[in-house]
């Protein structure tokens, strides 16, 4: 009888006890670094690029105005003309006044001066509609605006 009897190897199997910890870690990472989607976009937006950008601070004081051609599913019904979206629905330019008032009511009175309206606009949109929107914002005394852009080199043809 030899001491070195071949032992039957029983592979122990990988312990999955730490798996929940790892997943929770991932979960917390995503909870901290991301923000909730505010709206379902009904327009397609490819933001232009710029280099001189600044971060938008105080998310709660920012309201968004989306302009772009309708998303693919709605193209047949609405055509390719750029449209404006406020909150979850399409809106006409003259509804901006109401929109500004309702957004203003949502925030603290003291911070109205800091409220920013961020224009998220597709690169292909013509300036006509943007000028109209800016005019309406001026009329509604919403003067702080932000042209939403990505970081990157600008076109230099």
């Amino acid at each position: 009888m030899t001491k070195f009897k071949k032992q039957k190897k029983d592979s122990p199997g990988i312990s999955t006890a730490s798996l929940p910890d790892i997943v929770f870690m991932l979960l917390f990472f995503f909870m901290v670094t991301t923000v909730m989607r505010e709206v379902t976009l009904q327009v397609k937006i490819v933001k232009p690029t710029a280099t001189e950008i600044a971060k938008l601070e105080h998310k709660s004081l920012v309201s968004y105005i989306y302009v772009g051609p309708p998303i693919k599913g709605l193209l047949d019904k609405l055509g390719p003309e750029p449209r404006m979206q406020l909150n979850d629905a399409f809106a006409e330019i003259d509804e901006i006044g109401e929109f500004v008032v309702s957004e203003r009511e949502k925030i603290d009175e003291k911070e109205v001066g800091k409220q920013t309206f961020s224009l998220k606009v597709d690169t292909e949109v013509k300036m006509g509609i943007i000028s109209d929107i800016k005019m309406e914002l001026r009329e509604a005394q919403a003067l702080k605006i932000n042209y939403s852009t990505r970081k990157g080199e600008v076109l230099t043809k």
């Binding site: 991301t34 989607r37 710029a50 001189e52 950008i53 600044a54 938008l56 005394q141 919403a142 605006i145």
Partner: peptide, 17 residues
């Protein structure tokens, strides 16, 4: 349900009406 993109852009001030 969440998005990653941080909002960046060009800040401007419109002239009063």
């Amino acid at each position: 349900t969440t998005t990653m993109d941080t909002d960046t852009g060009l800040n401007r001030r419109l002239p009063p009406p």
